[in-house]
Design a protein around this nucleic acid. Structure first.
Lengths: 156, 156
DNA sequence: GGTGAAAGGAGTCATCC
DNA sequence: GGATGACTCCTTTCACC
């Protein structure tokens, strides 16, 4: 299956990224195609896993998740950052992101949670139980100025 | 306007977060309500800005954005992290996130771009032109194990 | 806040190009 | 790959509770 996207595909992705609830008919109108052809395109983008998920961005404050933190995690085994550790971190629901990074620290994780007290609990109860975590260094976010996962779609 | 969410609202958010393209009729069936009542609820969640956006997660690799980096930015003015600097950083399209953080560094930004060479260019052409940036420290992501912005929806 | 009915529009698929 | 047409189902509004 091809992974080459033409300009129609890119336009679909752009519209879908801005508003995933756009109707198939509206998509077709915007790009001057028949709805059935549109449906084919979208299904193929889903099959090819170019489209990973249709999701809804929710205000974290509305769900009382007011604290955001980035935590650097150093492995006990020096430079061997086991994928087991990464998997264990990934399983924690409050952990939104787990990145294996270059440098002395092994992992960078992004955590969203209610408050500082909850973060303390999470670290004591979840992080400390993962083997091979030598140390953690937390960076607390005071204010988020921009947060989007939108990618830049090339024009072609 | 109230910001208190009942269990129906939370269930809507849960379903929408997992699949924003769920039809209003399906939502209504899942939660055993009339479609018209469902529509009211969803519209109110949009109005209250609990729902921020319906978006589509796209595989960054499909768009050739294979490099992810976190960059710590220190302001020239010591501890005064101007909101002008934050605004300037936010305007750069490759910058997905700008966080004002606690500690010596002022800002943490998340950047997604094609490759290391492009990151160099971005830093030379965009970052360096912003006044009051004293220094930057980049953390390059080697592998992303988990990445989602999904929030934990309480059960109530 | 919720229901139910009704009209217009959208989703989907078989068929043809 | 894309268009057409037809059938089904969904969206949306409105009167009513």
């Amino acid at each position: 299956m091809e992974l080459i996207l033409d300009s129609t595909d890119l336009n679909i992705l752009k519209l879908m990224q801005d508003n995933s609830r756009i109707s198939n008919a509206d998509l077709a109108r915007e790009l001057k195609m028949a709805p059935s052809a549109m449906l084919e395109r979208v299904k193929k983008l889903e099959q090819k896993k170019v489209i990973l998920q249709y999701t809804t961005r929710i205000d974290p404050a509305a769900l009382n998740q007011k604290l955001l933190a980035f935590i650097f995690i150093r492995s006990a085994e020096g430079f061997t950052c086991s994928s087991q550790t990464a998997q264990a971190l990934s399983k924690i629901p409050e952990v939104q992101e787990v990145h294996h990074i270059a440098g002395e620290d092994c992992f960078l994780v992004k955590v969203r949670i209610a408050d500082a007290a909850s973060l303390m609990n999470l670290m004591r109860n979840s992080f400390q139980k993962i083997p091979n975590i030598a140390s953690t260094k937390s960076v607390i976010v005071l204010e988020t100025v921009k947060e989007q996962q939108q990618l830049i779609i090339p024009k072609k």
